[in-house]
Amino acid sequence: MDIKVNSKSYKIKKAVTTLLEALTYIQENIEPTLAFDYGCKSGVCGACSIRVNGKEQLACSYTPADGDTIEPIRYAKQRRDLLVDKSIAKSLIAKTKATIHSYKEEVLGVADEKKSEVQSNCILCSSCYSACPVVEVKPNFLGPYALTKTYKYTIDKREGEPKEHIDAIQSSGIWDCTLCNECTLACPQGIDPKSDIVNLRNLSASYGYMDPNFSNMGFSGGFGFDPNGGF
């Protein structure tokens, strides 16, 4: 099987179940200095996210095929080969203030657990962020996983100050999303950031916020994100 890593071809002369095994094979047998990251080997630590044929995958769970093209994920500074700087996650989480701000004593039940069960399966792999077309044109967009986190904390009954979260995502946040669904398709954990963003918009409306694109309609001539709108 031949695979291309950053446009260089490698012959994998061993049966492999995962792309991670193929990368390890290259490292041990062909190019020992090939730089890439991984951790748990079981799809839960988020370290090995990469792009295969233009789609985000986890190297540890993707089964490679002949002719696959591998590159690093996008919108993260490439440091070497497949190694990227993912530290932007910390600043996005800081900007969205994603944590409980004021704990309110509440007795939760099964229905409360289920409300954010899927959202809290996030492994912080950045696949959704890499897939999001808005990040390309608007680098300070808060992006899908941070907004999903916001949604999770906002609807948590234990949060005494849900408005803090809503306030934090108005600028460069929920209204910049085009609802294109790419994040949802990219997520290995079945999370649906797009729907969480829609829900956050509805919640924002109940706090008196309005879609800024509505008020600007006269200028930009459309809903939501307009790639020609001059960010």
């Binding site: 944590t99 409980i100 704990y103 004593e105 509440e106 007795v107 939760l108 039940g109 099964v110 409360d112 657990e113 954010s116 069960e117 809290s120 999770k152 904390y153 948590d156 234990r158 949060e159």
Partner: peptide
């Protein structure tokens, strides 16, 4: 952990937050 918002699995009908953790 309960106060920082860990989304534990739950049981219904508990009397206090910690009692609701499955």
């Amino acid at each position: 952990l309960e106060q920082i918002g860990v989304p534990f699995s739950r049981i219904n009908g508990a009397r206090s937050p910690l009692k609701s953790i499955a």
